[in-house]
């Protein structure tokens, strides 16, 4: 497993292979290129093209639009109450990411550092790790009951649940990372009379940065694209997320496929834009989050 060192830094392509890349295999390059264009980009191309057309241009679905109908986006924007749903989703995502990073890393740090010395923390570690085997679907029905009793079937409530439910996985991720941090720094800070909280936030927290990035990306992807939890927990039409709104409005689009696809593009666009800018970090983050 010496590979891990390589994977944890932000340049996944190892230096070693660079010098061997003198002779380019063009056949392979073109095969991979053609496959990427048709298989991966094809459905996305279809989505965008349909979103830009009007029904009269739909006889050949694949053709480029002769005339671009931006008003599809305007109509879809209004029909699905996009701004409200977007802000709801943004709120859940951003608040979740920030709170997850602070609270989960703190818990993970303490548990990892003291679990070998203290039975209680060791128990906590195994408690959280075993909770990873309980999928959301298993607790869904009783959770719905409990959440409604606490009046948490709204945006704030679901955000809170995301922060809590992310714990098992994030403790798993952070603990692998914390193990690699030498204790010398904390010991020095402790000698200087720093309090536990100070030690964590001043010394350890900044060192965990690469793992924060990974956790942030994974939490973001989870909450932004999640459908099941909003579906069962959120009921007020004002308190829906983008994914849930897409499901709810499906029937109202009827055969207006152009409008429906324009609304899909609206939902996909923020993630696509983010991907274009942070692609390298996202890929590195997801890789290091999974390969331990």
């Amino acid at each position: 497993m010496q590979a891990n060192a390589d994977l944890n830094n932000n340049t996944p392509a190892p230096r070693k292979s660079k010098k061997r890349k003198k002779k380019v295999n063009w056949t392979l390059t073109s095969v991979m290129m053609v496959l990427a264009i048709f298989a991966i980009l094809g459905p996305l191309y279809i989505t965008i093209v349909i979103a830009l057309k009007d029904p009269s241009q739909m006889s050949n679905v694949l053709s480029l639009p002769k005339q671009i109908h931006w008003e599809n986006f305007k109509n879809a924007w209004q029909m699905t109450n996009f701004p409200k749903m977007f802000l709801n989703t943004l709120f859940i995502t951003v608040v979740n990411v920030i709170f997850t990073i602070f609270t989960n890393s703190m818990a993970a740090y303490v548990i990892t550092r003291y679990r070998l010395k203290n039975k209680f923390f060791n128990m906590m570690y195994y408690y959280f790790i075993s909770a990873m085997f309980i999928p959301f679907n298993v607790i869904m029905l009783p959770l719905v009951k409990e959440v409604s009793a606490f009046h948490m079937d709204n945006i704030i409530g679901i955000t809170f649940l995301y922060i809590v439910f992310g714990l098992p996985q994030n403790i798993f991720l952070y603990s692998g990372f914390v193990k690699e941090i030498p204790t010398a720094l904390e010991e020095a800070a402790e000698m200087d009379g720093a309090k536990p909280m100070q030690i964590f936030f001043k010394v350890i927290f900044p060192l965990m940065k690469p793992m924060h990035a990974t956790v942030a990306i994974l939490s973001f992807m989870w909450t932004w694209n999640d459908f099941l939890m909003p579906l069962v927990l959120l009921s007020n039409p004002d308190q829906q997320t983008l994914q849930l709104a897409q499901y709810v409005f499906q029937g109202q689009f009827s055969t207006q496929y152009n409008l429906a696809f324009a609304s899909y593009v609206l939902v996909l666009l923020p993630v696509l834009i983010m991907y274009v800018f942070f692609q390298k970090y996202i890929i590195a983050g997801v890789t290091s989050g999974s390969v331990k």
Partner: peptide, 14 residues
């Protein structure tokens, strides 16, 4: 919503 019956039932459960 398109799947109104189920949605209403889950609201009822809540």
């Amino acid at each position: 919503p398109s799947n109104a019956g189920t949605v209403l039932k889950s609201d009822l459960a809540k």
